[in-house]
Design a protein around this nucleic acid. Structure first.
Lengths: 251, 251
DNA sequence: CGGCAAGTTGAGCCAGGTCAACTCCGGTGG
DNA sequence: CCACCGGAGTTGACCTGGCTCAACTTGCCG
């Protein structure tokens, strides 16, 4: 019986993507996990329901996009991070629960895992543990990179950086120069700490410089990746005052 | 012999702070770790030496402050995160190595751990594992909170938020209202994504509103914590246009 | 007690926020 | 099928918070 994966998993993208946790679990472990797992969907704008949060669950994102949003007293909204297929959200005891809320950016599919089973697997299966930890580290690194974008970059540079981030995160594309933008303009603005109007203008500028081409609002074609990288790293307008000599390149 | 901690550890702050990893290890494990460990110091401005980075080590911060800095092509500098006593930096295989550099914010003491031994201990000691795990999660949460600060907050709100962050991170203080600022104004500016001049002005404003008092540049006394929290959450100037009704409070 | 870096103060300016009008597009009902 | 509607996105005009640059003060170290 445990020679085959559970039926649920056999139709799940996370099981077939070997960057994901589930692809590296034993069939037995999967059966244990899935025994108590429940798959559910959220539509754009939906938060993870309160009653589910109460149970302090662990959620695996099996498809779609979900964001971690914070709201200030006067209504300013920020998207601190977003998660896509393969990301595992541990909603126990985190401050995230108190301060931010998880809200779907697009139709998202989540697989709810029983914390006890998850913990046991992480404890007992070193391969799973390493994979999950490296995922946590990737989240830290992403967040740090994002902080750099937000802290000192100009609007256009932030957008360039974001497009590159997307192109790295969604690299299962057939044509690598076509990049999926996983959220709407409004959300993008909140993620990048700017106004929707500014986002719109920056897309226009990058198009004008023939660095990218925008067909639909959620699809970008990169026309000149080196230029995009330069812009993202702050050498943007071709007339920068190279006041300091920097050797690092990055990205 | 293994009934006592290693000599090195017996004089190390990390060993005596029970929020830290070392305080939860067996003496035997500590001996294993320390056998190959080397303690070294960096002065303000020093990076972690390249030859050490090559060895992809694991570093425990036993005292002082160290930052993760990124530099853009034109010299703009950002501090994406900073680490203090108890933080463990795993410098293996991270992109951090390529893109950012770890630079001391003040005299910092680091304890270099052998990756193999560290891994073994994490594998074998569930208590250590859980502690390290929760530390990773704290880093993710900190980074998300920081992203929120950077994205949509105004200068004064960022500073208020930072002071509260410090008061949370360094809560071993005898007087909780006295907060240590772990870096200089210039670094603070780079961490908060603003200019040193603006940082200075914001300190003045908060003093003027009698929310804090600044004696030395690295010490702040919180005079009105609720007000500080309100400011940090964007209800700052007393005349905010409460356009949206928000129920969440936080912080 | 001089010298240099850090920090502060002031004046002016500009990138991006704000506000308002308009276009575009997908969904819905007649 | 088309007319209508509402929300998302865009465009334009204007305004301001914080950046910039420069001068000044403070504090630290020899």
């Amino acid at each position: 019986m445990t020679d085959n994966p559970p039926v649920k998993c056999a139709t799940c993208a996370m099981y077939f993507d070997n960057k994901n946790l589930c692809a590296h679990l034993e069939n037995e472990e999967l059966h244990d996990l899935v025994g108590q797992a429940r798959v559910f969907q959220l539509n754009r704008g939906d938060p993870i329901p309160d009653d589910l949060l109460q149970q302090k669950p662990i959620l695996a994102v099996t498809g779609g996009e979900i964001s971690l949003q914070y709201i200030l007293h006067d209504g300013r909204r920020t998207i601190a991070a977003f998660f896509s297929r393969g990301d595992v959200l541990d909603l126990r005891d985190t401050r995230s629960q108190r301060l931010g809320s998880f809200i779907a950016l697009a139709k998202v599919e989540l697989c709810r895992l029983a914390p006890e089973v998850f913990d046991r697997i992480i404890d007992e299966n070193p391969k799973a543990r390493k994979l999950y930890w490296s995922q946590l580290k990737v989240q830290v690194e992403r967040a740090h990179d994002h902080a750099v974008d937000l802290a000192k970059k100009k609007a256009q540079e932030k957008l360039a950086s974001f497009i590159l981030e997307c192109s790295n995160r969604y690299l299962d594309r057939v044509v690598p120069e076509i990049v999926q933008i996983p959220m709407r303009r409004r959300d993008l603005a909140e993620y990048l700490g700017m106004q929707p109007e500014t986002v719109s203008r920056c897309f226009k500028e990058l198009e004008g410089r023939e660095v990218i081409a925008v067909s639909e609002t959620k699809v970008v074609r990169i026309l000149n990746r080196p230029a995009l990288r330069l812009i993202a790293n702050g050498a943007g307008d071709g007339q920068e005052n190279q006041r300091f000599t920097i050797f690092r390149l990055g990205a």
